[in-house]
Every structure is written in structure tokens, then in C-alpha cells.
Nucleic acid binder design. Sequence first.
DNA 1: CTGAAAGCGCTTACAG
DNA 2: CTGAAAGCGCTTACAG
Lengths: 345, 345
Amino acid sequence: MKTKRSRVTLQDVAKHAGVSRSTASLIVRGSSTIAVNTRRKVLASIRELGYVYDRVAANMRSQSSSTVGVIITDIANPFFSEFLVGVHRTLEETGYIEFLGTTFDLDTKQDRILSTMLEHRVGGIILCPVSNSSAETIERLKKLDVPIVHAVRELPKLQCDYVGIDYTAGAQISVNHLIQKGHRRISFIGGSSGSSAWKERMQGYENGLKKSGIEIDESIIIESPVTREGGMVAVHHILSQQNPPTAIFCYNDLVALGVMQGLRDAKVTPGEDIAVVGFDNVQESSLYTPSLTTVNVFARLIGSQAANLIHQRMLDQDRDIQRIILQPELVTRRSSENYIREKIL
Amino acid sequence: MKTKRSRVTLQDVAKHAGVSRSTASLIVRGSSTIAVNTRRKVLASIRELGYVYDRVAANMRSQSSSTVGVIITDIANPFFSEFLVGVHRTLEETGYIEFLGTTFDLDTKQDRILSTMLEHRVGGIILCPVSNSSAETIERLKKLDVPIVHAVRELPKLQCDYVGIDYTAGAQISVNHLIQKGHRRISFIGGSSGSSAWKERMQGYENGLKKSGIEIDESIIIESPVTREGGMVAVHHILSQQNPPTAIFCYNDLVALGVMQGLRDAKVTPGEDIAVVGFDNVQESSLYTPSLTTVNVFARLIGSQAANLIHQRMLDQDRDIQRIILQPELVTRRSSENYIREKIL
DNA sequence: CTGAAAGCGCTTACAG
DNA sequence: CTGAAAGCGCTTACAG
């Protein structure tokens, strides 16, 4: 029978070890000013009584917090899995524990998760904002007195620590690569134009095309949900046009994988008939057939940098605001290997 | 300038609204015994002062908890992503918030995460145990006075709520399917024999073979890490044998995807030269080429059932122990479509 | 190292 | 509905 025994407290430990509560408190906090023998006695009592330190009570009294909230938009996206691994690896060294929240890219969910986390006294928040954050949300984030760092996507008008990638550069090297392969009609598929991550890619896409004197054709720029399904649906639109592109630059790998599947469904072979480039370099991109040319964004590194930033910010609210922009790298694979000069008149 | 203002308390709200702290407390907890006008006044003050309810303090006083710890073994496995979505969707309705811990299938990490969660006063834990839990860990879990439900994998000798799939049945229908396709030499690749999830699959694998009078050949049963890489490495071993199998039953989809890649690397075409079957039915399995025959285990449903169980258990520690075993379903795709009678003498 | 007191922000229990 | 008191399990600050 499991009897509902009440919690063993530090008081109990102190009594059992024959020391004062203050001394016991010092010991559980790892103070070095305590005589070795006393420490041993207390540690023995802790073990004997099965004492579990109540970090919540401790945090409350000392007005501190050992929790960090991590808010992402999509847990099914392997980019975020990697991101979370990076966050986790870095945070565990510091003794923090993480609350996880998933917004599914919805402003309302993000709002609720923020509230819940604040009510639980998180010491800091790592936020990957939803694409279309409302004005109210932005106002709210501004006023927050909890340390916050933004990751992956940036919110306009918000002075705040940030870690992200140079999406513009990433998009541009992708587009340049496609142009070098002979493509001049290059589609941009996926994502939501409300997010900074989209706008920056769009900028890079434009830069790349303009430098080669290619005009932007908005009819082959298609937004979509950031999922495989999103990519599949979008590519069907593209294929049904009178003058389909010869290459597709995708918002990310998830979309690209969907695009390639959509091409196959339409009996178009990705990598041969149409070149495809992704973004993120998720594990799967190298294992898919054809393997996917993509932009490595170092998701895990972004996560660990975000964790570092929030940790620093929690230690010192007044330090200078940091912006870390990682430089992406193109990873060339089979989905874009063919030159297609012959298709151009 | 962000000034470090101290937290607005319920006391402040009460004073501002001209009511007592008790009344304010009743209102934030949604009591219905309060006059409408009083409530309105207080809610207005809350908004005006920017009061944030301190659920941690409330939980502490009332000896309750609104947090649930979720411990998984691998966040990069899409099975667990789906599982987490299920947990999350169900838990958010109840107002709980989740701590996430990832063990990377290591006993020591699991131990540390458990400690950290207990110190943070989680109200309950959903645990997907590591494969090779030590005796100490099992002893510890037994003594835990926090409600716990196990999911996905079961620990021996532990009376505890559990949600899982009938892995034995899943393995058996897979093997039967392969036998019907004409295979008699079927390999089993991946996983760790220390886990219940492996043992049960092994049981199903054996059952399937025995019923068709096929002898077990241990040389084509290969354990591996539960990753793509694990599958890739293992399949190389298999191929280098004098008498390689004609079909491979994989521990899960992640392993199967690695196996298929390993086959390709060796110029063997999965689905044509060798049949491959996975387990889990992760999204990717339908999008890969060839699409992967697999066993649908309803990961999201497992997650939401686990969330239900922990919720029930937190409400009533003394209710009967529940074991929910979901029945898996075979999803037939191209990786196993070919009959291969001709290859058998 | 001890000991007594106060306090973190709530809820509880109760008399009015 | 109010008001005063006690307590959840700690830490803080201080006199000894």
C-alpha cells in the first residue's frame, strides 16, 4: 500500500541530523563553509529520510527561478527537434529545467502559452514567434519583465536578444546556385509572408535574381503552410501554370520534401526535370531520394546560442542587447545537380 | 528604460479594488459566490495593475501542482514528436503545463531528469523509460510518491499505469505479410534487447516465423541504436553475410529509413531486391521513395491516452491501475510490394 | 555553526 | 463578503 506520506522537509532533516535548519539549508545549497563532519551527518540524514529538495519553495523565497520556457511553432518539424536538442544540452549544464510550449504558429496559442508560463514564474523565455503576431502580442512582449530572447524569427520593433540565421544570404546562395545551373525561371514556394524569416528569404531571392538580370514573377511565388502537405499542394498550383519554372527554391526542407513528392505524383522527376532546393538541412534531406540540396542553418547551434543568451540575460538584465546572426552554408546534393541549358531557348 | 519593478501581488489588487485579499483570491480562482459588481471591480484592478497570478505560490500553499513532467528518449524521432503533440493537446485542456526531458536513452540522464523534476514539484510524470533501466532506477521509481504513468515501453516488475501498443501483434502481422509475399529469410534489425518494446517485437517475429515453420536464425537478428545511422550500419553487416535475407523487418521507421539508405549505398534496391518493413508509421514513411510498408501505432493517440491517465491518476491516487494496449495496423506500401518466389529454390 | 524571526505570494479556515 | 492569523518549505539577515 502506498501511503500518502507528507513531504520530508529540511526541518525534518535538520532535526534528524541534530543541526539547525540554517545549517542544513547551507549544506543543500553546497556551501563550502561547513565542517566536513557536519556535512556528512546531514547528507546521511537526507539519504535516510529520502529528502527531496524543494526548489520551488527555494525559488519563491529567494525570488529566483530555475525554469526556462521554450516556445516553438511546430514540434513535428525536425528543425525544431534539433533546435531543442541544442537548447536542452546547454541549459542542462546550468541546472535549469524547461517548460515546452508549441504554438502551431497560432497567435492565440502563443498568447495562452505565454500566460501560463508567466503564471508559473519562468525565469526566462526563449521564443520562436508565430508568423503573424498581432499588435497586442507585440505590445505585451514589450512590457514583459521576464527576460526573453527571440530565436529563428524576429519580431519587428522589438529591442531584444536574438539568434537567427542570415536568411537573406542563405536564399541568395541558393538562388545563385540554381542560376549557375542554368535556371532562369525559379519559383519560391512556402512559408508565410508575415514572418521575418520569410521576408528575409524573399529579399535574398530577389537579390539573387536581380543581380542576374532576371525579373521577379509573382505568379511563381507561392506561400504555403510550413509542412510537407503545404509543399505538395503548392507545387500542384505551379505545375498547372502555362509556363512552369525549371527550378524551385523552397522555404524549408519540410516544404521541399512535400514539393518533391508533389512532383513525383505529377510524374515529374525532382532533380532531373525540375531542380529543388530546400532550407534547414534536416537529417532527412540527405537520406531522401533524390538527396536534397539545401542550406545548412545549424539548428542545434541556434538552440544552444539561444540558451546561452537567455542564461546571460537572466544573470544580468542590464547587459547590452545581443544579436547573433549565423552564416548559412549551401549543401549541394542531387536534387539540383543537372544543368538544364537545353531547356532554355 | 526597463525598471525592475517588483511583482504585483493579490494584496495590491485587493487594496486597489477596495476589497479584502480573501475576496480577491476567490475571484482569481473563479469562485461563483461573488457578487457581479465586486468581481468586475477586481478584474478591472487586475488589468490596470497588470497583475499576474502566481500559480507557483498558490500550488505551494494548497499542496497541489499544475505541472506534468514528460520524459522521452529521443526528441529527433518523429514518433515522439507525434506522441508529444498528443500529450500536449490533451494536457492543455486541463490547464497543466509540461516540463520536457530527453534521456537520449541513457539511464544516468533519466535519473537526473527525474531528480530535477521532483525537485520542481511536478504533479505527475509521463515516462517513456530508457531501454536498459538499472535496478536502482526501478527501485527508485517504485518508491516515488508522485503519480507516474509509463508509456511506449514498460518496466518489468512495476505496478503502474501504462499505455502502449501490442508490439507483438504488430511484429507478427508484419512478418506474416512478408511471408505471404514469398519471403522465408527475414531479418530483424534494430533496437535494444533490454527494452520491453524490443522483446515484444521479438516475440511477434518468432511467432510469425514459427507458425510458418521457419526456423529462427540469430545471425540475421541485429540490434542497433534506434536511429537512421543505426539502421545503415546494421544493414551493412547483413549484406556482408554469405546468405543474406530477402526481407528485413525493422525495429521502427527511423531504423527502416536508415536500412533503405544502406541498401541503396550497396546498390541494392529496397522494395525490389529486398523488402523492408518499418514500425511506427511516421509521416516520412509515406513520402520516402520507395514508400515504406509499416505498422501504424497511433503515436498521437498514445500520447493523449497517457495524458488522460496521468490526469486521472493525479485526481485519484487510489484508483485501479490501468493498462491500455492499442492494436496496431499494417500499412502496406511499395517497400514490400514485390513477390519474390523466383528467388527461392 | 546556532536559533529565532520574518517573508516570498498565495490559500485555508474561521469568526463575524 | 471581511479580516486577522497561520502555514506551504524554503532563504535571508543577524545576533550570538
